[in-house]
Structure formats: C-alpha cells, structure tokens
Design a protein around this nucleic acid. Structure first.
Lengths: 340, 340
DNA sequence: AAGTATCTTCAAAGCGCTTTGGCTGCCGGA
DNA sequence: TCCGGCAGCCAAAGCGCTTTGAAGATACTT
C-alpha cells in the first residue's frame, strides 16, 4: 500500500493525503480524520526511502564506532546502548552503527554526512579539543557528546557526569579517614573523563596540603589485568599507598587480586574506592569486601542522550546545552581509617 | 556532485555513467575508464537514498535488539559487535540496531522488512523452534543466526560453536580426574546454547554411568551475583559437588567468591571449569587460580557472521549453510583430581 | 454585485538513482 | 547489395514520497 493507492482509494490527491498524515494545517479536520482512518485500516506506512529521498531526513541516529584489532569496545558501551534502546524503542528510532578504523574516523563522519544516513549522531569518549566535535560542528551535523571536551572554543551539546566532584569527594573522604598516601589508578588519560578524575583527586589532596606525585598515578586500559598490574607496581614500590581510587569495577577486580596476592587485606591495609558505571553483571556490593564507589548509571545516560537526540531531531532542542549529572558516593566496607 | 552533473560533464547519458560505475557489460572499456576516472576525481558518490529507492536495496545489515527495564544486554554483545565491526569497517557496511520491546520482536521485524531498511539481519541468542527464525524465513528477509535453533523443520544459515562437544569434553576431563559429583551452573536454559551445554555434560556423565540430577543443575542469568548464589546453594546442599562447570566468566567470578566464602579452595575442594567467550577485560588466566576453560572467541564469530552476511547480500551465499566451530578446552590450575 | 480574503484541494515538479526498451553504426555472411 | 547481429549508447519511465504554485469553493467586505 503506497500513497498513490491510498489517495486513489480516498478519491483525494497525494498532496492532501500526505499533508493530512503529516499534520499540516491546510487540511480540513474531517478530511484529516478520514485519511488517518483509512491509513490505519489499511496499514499504510510511508516508505522511508522515498521520504528520505524527498526530504533529506533519515529518521535515524548514528554512532561512529571505532574498531580494529587493537581496539576493544568496552562493556560500558553496551550499557549505554541499553539505555539508548530504552528510549528509542518506544519511538521507532533506529541507531546506525558505522564501524570505522580508529585512526580514520574523520573519513567515516564525512561519509555519513555526505550520505545523509542519519540526522544526528552521538559522540562518546571525547578527548580534550576533540577533533570529531570540531568536525561535526563544522559539517553542521547535529550531535550530542556523551562526556566533555575542553579547549574547543565553542559550545556544544553534551551530557556528562561530574567526574571531578565525584573523585574529589571520594578522595576527601579517604583523607578524612587519615590516609595521606592516596593513589589513583585511572583510565586512559588522553580522555577527558580521566583528566577530570585526576583533577578531582588532586584538588582534594591539595586542600590538605598533599600532592599526587606521578609515582602514585597509573593510567591504563580499564581491564582486570591492568588493574592488577597497576596495583602491584604501586604496592610494591616504596611508600606504598594506603588507599587507592580507581576508575572501573573491572580494574577493581584486579586490584583486589593484587592486594590479596601480596598478603594484604582490604580495607585493613589498603582502602579501595572504585567508580561504578552500574553493570547488571558485576556489582560492587558483591565484592568479597563490598566496594565503596562513586556511582553513576551509564544506562541512564544513554536514555537521556537518546531523548535529547530525539528532541534535537524534531527541532525543539537547538541550544548547545551542557548537562552535568552529579555522581553518588556510596560508602561500603572497602574503606577504613588509616593505620596510625 | 550527482549523477546528472557527472554525466553532463562527461557528455554521456546518466544511463551510461551508471552502468559504467556499476560494472555492467554494455559499456566499452575506454568509456568505463573515463567515467571511473572522473568519478574519482570529483569525489562522486551515489546517493544511497536514491539508490535505495530505485533498487529497494539498503546496503545495510540489521539487528533487532531487545531492550527494556528487565532486559540486560550483556557484554557478550559488545564483543560480537567488535567482530562485526572488524569486518564491516573495511567494507563500508553499516549496522542498523532496531531496539524493540523484548516481548514484541515480531512487530519490529515486520517493520524493518516493510521499510526495507536493511538487506539482511543477524539473529542472536536463539531458542528452540525460535519464532524469529520462522518469521524471517517466511518474510523472505535474508538472515544468519548466531547460534542454533532446533525443531524448526527447515534449514537456515547459522554459525554456532560446538557447545555440546565443549562441555562434553570438559566434563569427561573432570570424570577422568575422578570426580563423580559434577555440577553445572548454566545460563538461561530456554536458550539453545544452554541446552547443548547441558546435553554435553549429561552425555559425558552417562558414558561413566552417572547422571546429572536436577539438584546439581542451576540455571540463571550469567552474572557474578547469580554465579555466587548458585554455587552457594550447590555447595551448601548435601552431597555437594566436587567439580563445577559454568557457562561464563562472570559467573565464575561469583562461584570463586562463594567457594572462598565457605572456606573452601579451588581446586583442592572444588574443581572449576568455565566457558570463556574471550573478553579483553577479564581473562581466565588472571583468576586468582587460573581457570580451566572451554574457549571460543565471540569476536571471531562476529567477524565471520559479518563476512557471511556480506556474501549473502552480494548473492553469492545462498545455501542455508550451517557452520559449527569447535571449542577449545584450555586446561589451567583450577582443576585437580578428586579427593579420595 | 463585484472584489477580496480564507479554506481546501490538486496537478505536477522534483529528490537522484536504476532499468527498460530503443536507436545507431559497424561488421560479417549471403 | 542487403540483412541480421552485436556493441555501445541514450531517452525516458519509474521508485514513493514532499512541496510548490495554482485553482476552485466559500465566506466576508464594501
């Protein structure tokens, strides 16, 4: 059933039927009703390809997904996707994933813009002065950034969590417990989120007159293995930390293993705080010693990004709104006062 | 730059240019070269929407993604996606994710077929007599199943791993080590993969004259928490198992925790084998006691599925080919001879 | 009564591609 | 010399929608 057939059936022109269906004002209410009725009864659905060709709008949102032998998409992505789906599901909004070589994202962005495959995209894991954001801004493709970028020189729509405050508060708590040798096992510090976390910790320490020397920072992929390795090297050094903050639960798993391997205990010897993105399959309260965390649901962020993307498509959101969510500090058994 | 402009520029008809570019035979080699040259020089790229409207082909592959408050997309998905991307990246092949309510996938499948949004889809986590497969078969949308379904009454293209053999071999190994009380902590048994795993274990036990009583089987979501819970209930029962097979590394994490909480040890008191889908962020060799696993890279499967999907699109693969990959049994320290 | 504004509706022109059904010239065979 | 066949090219008709520009109908002014 296409427009032509439907309009013949109703003895109306395609124009009128199209307008009636798309809510244009120059159609009488009665006609609109008749049309809507018939459309529903015959299960008419406009052909998206035709509509796209005519309007240039795709009705889909996109994500340029870096892949490659050396690139591991991490499990955060799937949680974000769940959230996106939560919203999109109810709105017949589809997501186009365009895989790309990690070192050549620009080409892919240009391609999807040229092809008009999607009406908007979301960008994740931004870096300082992120080139993708600058590119999108220049190409005029609507987008929302999950995370933040600094030093771009213009505003852009984004949704981020307050990583700095979260890690600041967590660090301050450790200081209040008397810890002075606090270490940070961070994610990839070329990404903004990691920079903000470090900044938060640093600020808290500074407020107590303490520094965060390079010897107490590690930066690595957020895996169990890297967590283990980083913790090992920290704890085997001289003046080992009595408290560790880390950027992911997977890392925390490795850190706990390292601590245990060294014959130490949480929290007696080492206090541990991790950031929790809220995974259904690994929960901080279920660690052998329940983990204190800074928590923010990445799935909820996905929902919100989808929602904002949708309002952006409909032309309702047009400001480069920056939205920052607070991070919960959830205290559990993995921290204790420093030994005196 | 569109076809019209390009053909004007070359003083050729759109027909000829189109044919030249698409490799049709009725164009002289010289003309073809000229056209190809000009196209490249001016960066001409056919507009996908127009092409789609004209041909009905989308040039994209799809995945109907169940979501919902109670649905957790699990991290296996992201690994599979990485694999898909590995292949797709080099072929400008995009993936359309259509989120759907978990209990209403049929509507979504019908929608994407009606809309001609994608040329083929892949189906994951199949169940016995999976209705999605029957539906796709009936609708005539090309597809490939990652996994298998039984009792459908027709052949369909799929790629699966040999779950039965993998778990059979693992169970046999445990039997050879003298274990007689072997338990299975499985995933959701409404899915085929779990059924095959159970079948494999059962067959191995039967060969030694042993059974797998319901009291030694657990089935649950593949999370740390459920692994813990299942292991607890098994080990606290009477005649607790001396060996456990489980369906995922996340579960294994919980099982190890349970064993430890009960003051038992791996492998002294309990031997443990898990299935490993090969995640970059959690490796069996890095468990406190390195884990024996049945291993198969889900990422590699993603690559292969993408590849087959692509050959299917190009019309080269047309048989309902079923491809079964062997599963590696990787022995590590988590198993030992049963106490006598 | 003519003129003007307001509703409704429509025919037709795109959007940019593929594909059908010719048409033209050239060659070899009869 | 004529004709059938073939290689190479083209004009035009879709694909199914949106949107422009106009026209008919009705109501309202003056």
């Amino acid at each position: 059933m296409n427009l032509k057939q439907l309009s013949n059936m109703l003895a109306l022109s395609q124009t009128t039927v199209s307008r009636a269906l798309n809510g244009y004002p120059e159609v009488s209410e009665e006609t609109r009703r008749r049309v809507a009725d018939a459309a529903k009864r015959h299960g008419y659905r406009p052909n998206p390809s035709a509509r796209r060709l005519a309007t240039g709008k795709a009705g889909m949102i996109g994500y340029v997904m870096p892949t490659g032998a050396s690139v591991d998409i991490d499990p955060h992505f799937v949680e974000f996707l769940s959230g996106l789906g939560d919203y999109a599901r109810g709105h017949e909004l589809d997501l186009v994933l365009s895989p790309t070589a990690a070192d050549d994202e620009e080409t892919t962005y240009r391609r999807i813009v040229a092809n008009k495959q999607v009406d908007a995209v979301y960008v994740s894991s931004p870096r300082p002065a992120d080139r993708r954001i600058a590119l999108l801004n220049q190409l005029g493709l609507p987008f929302i950034v999950h995370g933040r970028s600094e030093g771009l020189g213009f505003d852009y729509p984004h949704l981020d969590i307050d990583n700095e405050a979260g890690f600041h508060d967590a660090a301050r708590l450790l200081l209040q417990l008397g810890h002075t040798r606090v270490a940070l096992i961070n994610g990839d510090t070329s990404q903004t989120f990691a920079i903000f976390r470090e900044r938060g910790v640093r600020r808290a320490l500074a407020a107590s007159g303490l520094a965060l020397p390079p010897a107490r920072i590690r930066s690595a992929a957020m895996t169990e293995e890297e967590g283990f390795r980083a913790a090992m090297s920290l704890l085997r050094g001289n003046e080992p930390p009595t408290a560790i903050l880390c950027s992911s639960l997977m890392m925390a798993l490795g850190i706990v293993r390292a601590i245990r391997d060294l014959g130490l205990a949480v929290p007696a010897d080492v206090s541990l705080v991790a950031h929790d993105d809220v995974f259904p399959w690994l929960k901080p309260e279920n660690f052998s010693v329940p983990l204190t965390t800074t928590r923010s649901s990445i799935r909820a962020a996905g929902q919100r990004v989808a929602e904002r993307l949708a309002t952006r498509l409909s032309g309702q959101e047009t400001e480069p709104l920056g939205e920052i969510w607070p991070v919960d500090l959830v205290v559990r058994a993995s921290i204790a006062a420093a030994k005196t």
